[in-house]
């Protein structure tokens, strides 16, 4: 069964078409990677899925329900969690409080009911030592971890990750891949935008290539990367 499906979704900013009849679907429990050059419309695609921006036309279905007109808040409550490419922490709150907000509001539970789970997520994402630190004083790496941790705290069925591996060292990157594999193993569906290809391909089962707001190719990673068209528009450099 498909957990999310987009049908001919279009979005323009003025004359610039950032989403051009995007159509694809993701099965429940799958992990899909999205690649494409800068400005291809990858983050816009996420915003269309989460409801942070509204589609001009086309439909978005989540768990069989038409969510095209739903707000970002409503879609979060339905089970779509996301991280932002540029970290958007609640800056004056502590790391732990960031997760408490996400847990209690995202799952519609009391603070008490989610505090243990929030602490466990901090433990898994390596942030437990910073639990009582104000988010504004975190390093970039820690902010990226907080993005992942906060998205997890909403207990999403579909998790959208937007370039969370960029700028990490090799060791940090493989730790991150390990964490994401664990999340995936618990049955969470993942869509992951990433430039660090080896990290991406070690987790995802399919790749989707985006260019100028259009879906160029979808399929199993090795096959996709072998296509001359993909190599030309996206890679330029060898992997």
């Amino acid at each position: 069964m498909s957990i999310i499906s987009l049908d001919s979704v279009c979005k323009s900013f003025g004359a610039l078409k950032v989403a051009d009849a995007i159509t694809f679907e993701v099965r429940e429990g799958e992990a899909l990677g999205i690649i494409g050059p800068n400005g291809a419309g990858k983050s816009t695609l996420f915003n269309l899925i989460t409801g942070n921006i509204a589609a001009d036309s086309g439909t978005v279905h989540f768990l069989g329900e038409d969510v095209t007109r739903q707000s970002a808040m409503q879609r979060c409550l339905n089970g779509i969690g996301r991280s932002f490419q540029i970290p958007q922490p609640f800056g004056k709150m502590t790391v732990f409080e960031n997760l408490l907000v996400a847990g209690s509001f995202g799952q519609g539970k009391s603070e008490r009911a989610v505090e243990q789970a929030a602490a466990d997520i901090l433990d898994r994402t390596g942030l437990i030592g910073r639990a009582n630190t104000v988010a504004d004083s975190l390093s970039l790496l820690e902010r990226k971890r907080l993005e992942l941790a906060r998205a997890l705290a909403t207990a999403p069925r579909l998790l959208l990750l937007d370039e969370i591996a960029g700028g990490l060292t090799e060791g940090e990157c493989s730790q991150l891949v390990g964490t994401i594999k664990d999340i995936h193993a618990t049955g969470t569906t993942i869509i992951w935008i990433e430039h660090v290809l080896h990290a991406l391909t070690s987790v995802v089962e399919r790749l989707l290539v985006l260019d100028f707001g259009k879906v160029i190719a979808v399929g199993e990673p090795a096959g996709i990367m072998a296509r001359p068209q993909v190599r030309e528009i996206y890679l330029g450099i060898e992997v």
Binding site: N52, S71, M73, C76, Q88, P89, F90, E97, V101
Partner: peptide, 15 residues
């Protein structure tokens, strides 16, 4: 507090 700090992120976590 979440809305004060970042309204967009607040909406994205269900506030």
């Amino acid at each position: 507090a979440a809305v004060r700090d970042n309204p967009q992120a607040a909406r994205s976590v269900g506030v």
